[in-house]
Amino acid sequence: MAKESNLSSLVHELRERVAASASTPANNLRHSSGDEEDALEIRFRDVFPNLLNTYVVPSLGNGREVTAVLKLVGHTARNIPGVFYHGNPCAILPVIARIIPFFAQPEFVHGHGVLLETVASLLMLLRSNSRKAYRMFFHDALQAIQGLLQKLPP
């Protein structure tokens, strides 16, 4: 119950932040609130691992819950990049790795748009910090796909 109330208050703060961002340029919003922004980032960093471990599980995932968490992750990556240490690969790549298996789940075919939007937001954040990490991610993904193709029966 405490986790749900923590998430609820976090989502409420996020809604307030989004409403405030409608009238404030994004760069000013990110840098103007100082300690308050840092506290929100820290809270998100504390909550995201639990959300991902609890709700974003391919074999057990409830479509609505997974979609809600992924929308929150994507929105956070776009609007509060400090949660992901402004594009640090160690903060982003594990989240992407947790999302990718959903593309193979037949019950999530209808949710591919949300999956793609979330991964795209995370990749853009990764790219903004480290072009080398971005290139390495795609290089490794290409090698994995080529390896899988070689193992397929003719």
Rank of each mutant, 00 (worst) to 15 (best):
S130E: 10
L149N: 05
G34W: 00
R17V: 04
V95Q: 07
V119Q: 08
A19T: 11
H75R: 05
A120K: 04
A120L: 09
L149E: 13
S21Q: 15
G111K: 13
K151Y: 07
V11H: 04
P49R: 08
A141I: 00
G147L: 06
E107G: 04
P153I: 11
R17Y: 15
H139N: 03
I100H: 01
S32C: 06
E117A: 14
E117W: 09
G147R: 10
F48D: 01
L60H: 11
G147A: 10
N79H: 15
H86D: 15
S8A: 12
R30Q: 14
R131D: 10
D35R: 13
S23T: 10
H31F: 14
L70Q: 02
P154Q: 11
N79G: 10
L122Q: 06
G147C: 04
N6D: 07
Y85F: 03
M136P: 00
S121R: 01
F137T: 01
R98P: 00
L52H: 03
A20I: 00
D35Y: 08
I99A: 10
N28Q: 12
G61T: 00
K132W: 04
G147D: 12
N129T: 02
R98A: 14
V69G: 02
L123G: 00
A2L: 11
R135P: 00
L70D: 02
A39M: 03
R30W: 12
S32K: 10
H86T: 06
L142H: 13
F138N: 08
L126N: 12
V73E: 03
V56E: 08
R17D: 07
V57F: 07
F138P: 04
D35G: 04
S128E: 04
M124A: 05
P58E: 09
R43F: 00
E13K: 02
E4F: 06
K3H: 03
A91I: 01
A97F: 02
G87E: 05
S33V: 09
G63F: 00
P25W: 00
L142E: 13
G82C: 05
L93F: 02
A20D: 07
V83R: 06
R135S: 11
R45V: 07
M124H: 13
E37I: 08
Q150F: 05
E107I: 08
E37V: 07
P106W: 05
Y134W: 14
T54F: 01
